[in-house]
Nucleic acid binder design. Structure first.
Lengths: 151, 151
DNA sequence: GCGTAATATCTCGCTCACCGAGATTATCGC
DNA sequence: GCGATAATCTCGGTGAGCGAGATATTACGC
């Protein structure tokens, strides 16, 4: 596999994009006095809310690869910042549901807003078919790596 | 901006890919008894070596958004793990150059190898023009976000 | 050349994110 | 009901990263 092959270029740029997004998250976190982990958690929680997946501490911990102690600490932090609220699940009273506060969605938009604007601006230069190609490729990579990680 | 618009789908999948890559890094780190930060540092150092950019603690700290104390601790860790070597710069003797050991490149390949294999497999289903479209799009997003972060 | 400012790195003390182990509380199958 | 299982939380400890400041080397103004 040549270092200059088209596919290797793709790998490099993909990696560079993830590094860049990480740094964006870290800077956003620092600017708002929270930790990169909190931003990552926020992303997962907003994602869950968007997809109507019930979010619990256990679920969040699995997403973030944190153990239960770390997860409790994380949720404590988020609750203290008034970004989430703990509520008991009436069906299974062992469970605690995490509900994102409005403050959290606002924070989420102020993080993603600029990113979305960037991507929208870039997308201007591509036609619908091309964007569909990009989306298809990224989706395939996503599923492929998720698959690989699960094994 | 509709949540189901093609561009928003792209944003979501891009974000999902970065989350997935983060998790890959974290799991790789855990499996090798090091920290996600160490893996990130390794990526930056191997990148620098590949591009013939001289890597110093200061440079690495800027890439990672660590302050000097944290950077020193990081380099200490990497040196203890025999992944990098500190050498004095003869031109500017205030500076310390970080040279990656062979062990580090091996570790890098064992991390990227599987990822590359995934991307290569996915790329099979796309022709050269399509891959070029994807690469162009990601490169544009990369530059655009780098630009935005600098301001 | 000489003193001063700027630059690169490191040291010290501290905070707190995260882990391992285990306690607590609630649910389910028998 | 009772043991097994599951979800969450508590406690104690480790160490990554920060702020402040020390040290060493180089660049600049005179």
């Amino acid at each position: 596999m040549n270092d200059r092959s088209p596919v290797m270029e793709l790998v490099h740029v993909l990696r560079a994009v993830t590094v860049e997004f990480d740094l964006l998250g870290a800077e956003f976190a620092a600017r708002h006095g929270l930790h990169p982990t909190d931003v990552r958690a926020l992303i997962h929680l907003l994602d869950a809310a968007r997809k109507d997946i019930p979010a619990t501490p256990g679920w969040l911990g699995r997403q973030m690869r944190l153990n239960s102690a770390g997860t409790t600490a994380l949720v404590d932090r988020l609750e203290r910042l008034e970004l989430v609220r703990r509520t008991k699940d009436t069906a299974d009273r062992r469970r605690v549901l995490l509900e994102v506060e409005e403050k959290a969605t606002e924070l989420g938009w102020s993080f993603f807003g600029p990113v979305i604007a960037e991507v929208v601006a870039v997308a201007e230069g591509f036609d619908t078919g091309e964007l569909e190609t990009v989306r298809g490729f990224l989706t395939a990579v996503l599923h492929s790596t998720q698959q690989a990680r699960a094994t």
